[in-house]
Write a protein that binds this DNA or RNA. Structure first.
Length: 420
RNA sequence: GGCGCAUUCGUCUAGUGGCCUAGGACACCGCCCUCUCACGGCGGCGGCACGGGUUCGAAUCCCGUAUGCGCCUCCA
């Protein structure tokens, strides 16, 4: 039987990183098995806004590279079908009315068990399981009823979901049995925790997939990083692209214990992917990111600075602070310039007549000037860096000066000399 | 409280009874490279939660304890 799985986000629009990781496992499994990956919006609560959040969800999933087969379906659309099944169950004595609601009759003894791909055998004593409400007194079915019914109707073969659903599973299994449906294979994947071992939440930093996008992480980074949270192909490999991930993924190797989200490792990995990009592709993505995040800087100029920063920043959000001096005035403080007056003047003199005004010539003449003042390179160049870039940390000095141009460089040098 | 699940370096993990003197990666520390930062290179620190078993032999199997997490809604 062909594999068919489903991703079931809550219709809030906000895609939590933990949820995305679960969807990713669904997607990887489906793609590797040559199966189908469906998108299903599970909402039985009519008060939530669904339509616009669906667009948001689709966009977020697309960004990271997770796709789905067919049109998304809505739990809401099958409420009538659920009600009919519930009535049938009542007629068969498998469910009963209780104060206007309908409860499903769970077995009183024995165990409900399944072989979970991630957990192994899981068993629940039926005696401990209460009869769940499946249809509210206002006629709306409950998630715990609608979800397994949809799995049956959609022919879902593997239910891959968060482990917070483990305790729902025996109930859902009994419901599926009661309606004569085929049981899917279950795989309950663990949660993702924050760096304090608690559930990942706002105070840990970014938690929504869109926030990572806004912070300047690449989708290929997120894909790779998320896949490695709770799964590893072996003990060595950490860098894998989309195709490798699909080729090597296996549910059997998903860990059953929760993983903590390590932002430092994410930064490292993003740096790796950033550096791997071809220079023009890097420039292109940087320009797009800046545009998306409200920086109206000249695209061509941004593109020319790109090679100077590609090896130096781990995510695009560092760019404005790191390279903003190319796009606006700088205001170095006297303290930062301390003791550099002599070298600033020498640099001014050396650069004013320099031809050609390129990085190589700039470096040569500034080194000569430093030597004359008997300054070590580091001592000589720091005040110039501060004067020109407004910071003690910057892209390569000589390349930056070339790009900035003679006029602007001299202007900044003189302003700094006056302030020093 | 009941039920369920989990527990290997700080973090992500490899490990499925002898290949383990527990391997890799991130982080951290040191050195090298160097105009700052970063990259890169080299080296280092660091772990099987605890206690009992089983076995010639256990990170690996069993039991207990501890800790953490999830669920216990006419939420999803």
């Amino acid at each position: 039987m062909a594999v068919r799985v489903r991703m079931a986000p809550s219709p809030t629009g906000f895609l939590h990183i933990g949820g995305v990781r679960t969807f990713l496992f669904n997607w990887l499994f489906a793609r590797q098995q040559g199966g189908e990956n469906r998108l299903r919006i599970e909402n039985t609560d009519t008060t939530r806004e669904v339509a616009e959040s669906l667009d948001q969800i689709k966009q977020s999933l697309s960004w990271i590279g997770i796709d789905w087969d067919g049109e998304p379906t809505f739990q809401l659309d099958r409420m009538d079908d659920c009600r009919k099944v519930a009535e049938q169950l009542v007629a068969e004595g498998k469910a009963y009315e209780d104060e206007g609601a309908i409860r499903f009759r769970m077995p009183d003894d024995g165990v409900t068990a399944w072989d979970d791909i991630v957990r192994g055998r899981v068993e629940f004593e039926n005696a401990n399981l209460a009869d769940p409400v499946i249809v509210r007194s206002d006629g709306r079915p409950i998630y715990n009823f609608a979800s397994p019914m949809e799995d049956v109707w959609d022919g879902i073969t593997h239910v891959i979901r968060g482990d917070d659903h483990i305790s729902n599973t025996p109930t859902q299994i009994q419901i599926i049995r009661a309606v004569g449906g085929d049981l899917p294979v279950y795989a309950h994947v663990p949660n993702i925790f924050g760096e304090d071992g608690k559930k990942l939440s706002k105070r840990h930093g970014a938690t929504g997939i869109d926030e990572f996008r806004a912070a300047g992480y690449l989708p290929e980074t997120m894909l790779n990083f998320l896949a490695l949270l709770g799964w590893a192909p072996d003990g060595e490999t950490t860098l894998m692209n989309r195709d490798e991930l699909v080729a090597r993924f296996s549910l059997e190797r998903v860990s059953s214990s929760p993983a903590q989200f390590d932002y430092a490792k994410l930064d490292w990995m993003n740096g790796v992917y950033l550096r791997e990009l071809a220079p023009d592709e890097y420039a292109h993505r940087l320009v797009l990111w800046l545009g998306e995040n409200g920086y109206e800087w000249d695209a061509e100029r941004v593109a020319r600075t790109a090679p100077l920063v590609q090896e130096k920043i781990a995510k695009f959000s560092e760019y404005p602070a790191f390279a903003g001096f190319f796009f606006g005035d700088v205001e170095p403080t006297a303290a930062e310039l301390a003791g550099g007056g002599e070298m600033l003047a020498a640099a001014d003199q050396a650069l004013a007549p320099l031809e050609p005004f390129d990085a190589e010539a700039i470096e040569a003449t500034l080194r000569a000037a430093a030597e004359q003042l008997e300054l070590k390179p580091r001592q000589a160049f720091q005040p110039i860096r501060v004067a020109v870039t407004g910071s003690k940390v910057s892209p390569g000095l000589f390349e930056s000066i070339e790009l900035l141009g003679r006029d602007e460089t001299l202007k900044r040098l003189r302003a700094a000399a006056a302030a020093a």
